[in-house]
């Protein structure tokens, strides 16, 4: 009995080991650093796994933390893909020459507004800065036409912003480009003098509007839509400023393939999948973001992408990587 079993093990063990090794070699895995939160992107990643048979392992964290991680890791990074919440972080990684150039076939899927001019990254969805307000306390005709109107006395102590938030900072970067350093600084100081209330991020702005703490706020467009999804009578509304106003900035979430990965084919498949109708439809319908390709059934709560791009100021997203200048400015006015 005993010897039989031993003999059996002599055969079984190497066979199992062989299977194990084959398994390791065959299960193709792709490591993704995602600055987009899991709650938003996991369903579409699951879908990709199902369709491609490629297993995706995701490290979720804040976009800038992941960018800092990538910069620390250098060419030793285990990541194949960096999926960032904003263009600035993609620019920072791109600057260190860590991204692989994307093929023309991928880049040509999106309009030039939605990709890196040098082809190192491509947008996966768009989002807009908006003016959120309390319809109970602010009349339609009172609504400010420009972000610059918010420093007027009538809005004293009534505006909420999130000046330490990355999407606000992207807006300031764009503002500096559009109206110059001096006017941007004057606006920031004007907002502070006018008693703008500081919040840590976008969600608390919406909640403060509902709670009656403030009457106007400067968040991204999709947060309110999520509140409305749960409660359609949620007492907050949002709108845009006048056409081309810096307050209507459109920023993107985007993706790049890392040079250091030996898994480029799978990484490219992933990028292509995110630019497919299926994924883009998901971003529009479930995440409430703007699609970057045509042919997607529009979300009734969102403007058509073409109208949005018209309202938005013209701005080259590659200039978004001038974080340092923005940080210097925010420090000068004692916001940071």
């Amino acid at each position: 009995m005993f010897t039989n079993r031993t003999r059996l093990f002599n055969y079984i063990f190497p066979v199992l080991l062989l299977f194990f090794l084959i398994g390791i070699v065959h299960a193709e895995t792709l490591t993704v650093y995602s600055g987009r939160s899991k709650s938003l992107v996991e369903p579409i990643i699951k879908q990709f796994e199902k369709e491609s048979g490629i297993q995706v392992k995701v490290s979720y964290a804040k976009t800038t933390q992941l960018a800092a991680t990538l910069l620390t890791e250098g060419d030793k990074s285990p990541a194949a893909i960096f999926w960032a919440q904003d263009a600035g972080a993609l620019g920072a990684v791109s600057k260190m020459a860590m991204f692989e150039k994307l093929p023309e076939s991928v880049l040509s899927k999106v309009p030039s507004d939605f990709r890196d001019a040098d082809g190192f990254w491509v947008a996966t969805s768009g989002r807009a800065r908006v003016l959120a307000y309390s319809p109970e306390r602010v009349k339609m005709e009172e609504l400010p036409q420009s972000v610059f109107d918010l420093t007027q006395p009538m809005w004293k102590d009534r505006v909420g912003w999130a000046p330490t938030n990355a999407s606000f900072q992207a807006f300031v970067t764009a503002l500096r480009r559009q109206v110059g350093e001096e006017r941007a600084e004057a606006w920031l100081r004007g907002m502070q003098a006018n008693g703008a209330k500081k919040y840590a991020k976008n969600t608390p702005i919406i909640e403060a509007l509902a709670a009656g703490e403030i009457d106007l706020g400067l968040p991204n467009h999709y947060y309110l839509l999520r509140f409305k999804k749960g409660d359609s009578s949620y007492p907050v509304a949002q709108t845009f400023f006048k056409t081309d106003d810096p307050g209507n900035l459109v920023n993107v979430a985007g993706i790049g393939v890392l040079k250091s990965t030996d898994n480029k084919a799978a990484a490219l498949k992933f990028v292509e999948f995110l630019l497919s109708i299926k994924a883009q439809q998901y971003f529009t319908s479930d995440v409430f973001e703007y699609p970057v390709i045509d042919g997607v059934i529009p979300n009734a709560n969102l403007l058509p992408s073409s109208e949005l791009l018209e309202l938005a100021p013209t701005f080259d997203l590659n200039q978004m990587d001038d974080l340092e200048g923005t940080v210097d400015l925010l420090r000068r006015v004692e916001i940071l």
């Binding site: 804040k62 800038t64 800092a68 910069l71 940080v327 940071l336």
Partner: peptide, 13 residues
């Protein structure tokens, strides 16, 4: 608070 926002803002740290 200042420290964390610093880590979300700048890359030179």
């Amino acid at each position: 608070y200042a420290l964390y926002t610093e880590y979300t803002f700048s890359f030179d740290h």
